[in-house]
């Protein structure tokens, strides 16, 4: 019963597949193909990332993160969030365990938001792709608007929107 509850959403998605299969067989088959190839992507990234995150959790002393990304890190903290976000590779779900590690080690909430913002705006290999396909102007606008927006959002979330929820969020993240 507990297992059934855990996989409730998966079962719902499978049901959607089944319905799609009877309505539009070809679409369902191609959807299954895409899902299966995504399994490969996930297996190629998620297990090593989780291992790296947990090993770093054991290896890096809390003071190091606090010094560079803690409450009093200032602009240096933004730099590190940017650096980690832009060098990190992989889909968004890979960024969550990394963010959890940073939080566990005492990183400031605004830096975690900015880290996720950087991750979703640009990454080093992707930057070259974007430049190549869309040109300098487009890429520059993307990066400048992205960073300024997330700078603002990170402060807004920390100081106003999540002010009361901060401890709850950190408690939740430290369980991960």
């Amino acid at each position: 019963m507990k297992l059934l509850k855990k996989y409730k959403m998966t079962l719902i998605a499978l049901l959607a597949f089944l319905i799609l299969f009877f309505v539009r067989r070809e679409t369902a088959v191609s959807a299954m193909g895409i899902s299966l190839s995504s399994v490969g992507t996930m297996l190629s990234i998620l297990p090593p990332i989780l291992l790296i995150v947990n090993l770093l959790d054991a290896l890096i002393p809390r003071e190091v993160i606090i010094r560079h990304m803690g409450e009093n890190a200032g602009l240096k903290g933004y730099f590190w969030s940017f650096a980690l976000g832009t060098f990190g590779a992989g889909p968004l779900y890979v960024a969550f365990p990394v963010a959890a590690l940073l939080a566990k080690k005492g990183a400031r909430l605004a830096f975690i938001v900015f880290f996720l913002g950087t991750w979703t705006t640009t990454k080093l290999p992707i930057f070259l792709y974007e430049l190549n396909f869309f040109g300098v102007a487009f890429t520059t606008i993307h990066i400048v608007t992205g960073f300024s927006a997330f700078f603002f959002i990170s402060i807004l979330m920390e100081k106003i929107l999540l002010k009361k929820d901060r401890d709850l969020i950190y408690a939740k993240l430290s369980e991960k």
Binding site: Y7, I12, I34, S38
Partner: peptide
Amino acid sequence: PQMSFILLLIGLSLAV
């Protein structure tokens, strides 16, 4: 549990 749901949804969303 979450990943299996996410992976199924990826296929559905891209096919549609």
